[in-house]
């Protein structure tokens, strides 16, 4: 069976060579993942496995650091560091706070993903 990320040789179109600097949140996500990794709580192997578990359409549905973030969330639950309930409660709190400070500008389709 083909893992969703095992794509060598598959037909694809032109490469978009445009580069872009990381957004602030992407840098934060990268730093958070590195910090968690430094504690021995997520190896690159575990991270890759979690990303593969997101399914065949993850590359289309999610950006790179969205996939990393989803992987980190699953990993923290599977290692028993956080519970899904804790995460859901915190997500709701953060969302509420961002809405109040006017920092929330959800893209179409994001609203319904929220707990």
């Amino acid at each position: 069976m083909r893992s969703p990320q095992d794509i060598g040789g598959l037909p694809e179109g032109p490469i978009d060579a445009a580069d872009h600097a990381l957004n602030f949140w992407e840098k934060q996500a990268d730093g958070l993942r590195a910090a968690v990794g430094s504690k021995g709580l997520m190896s690159s192997h575990e991270s890759r496995r979690a990303i593969e578990s997101l399914g065949h359409d993850a590359m289309e549905r999610l950006t790179y650091y969205e996939r990393w973030t989803a992987a980190l969330s699953m990993q923290m639950v599977s290692r028993g560091v956080l519970t899904q309930d804790e995460i859901d409660v915190k997500v709701a709190q953060v969302r509420q706070r961002l809405a109040e400070t006017g920092e929330l500008e959800l893209r179409p389709g994001e609203q319904e993903k929220l707990p």
């Binding site: 949140w25 934060q28 958070l32 980190l72 969330s73 995460i87 915190k90 920092e103 500008e105 959800l106």
Partner: peptide, 11 residues
Amino acid sequence: VHSYHQILSIA
């Protein structure tokens, strides 16, 4: 903040 995963990352 534009996406669910961005909120998730902060959380």
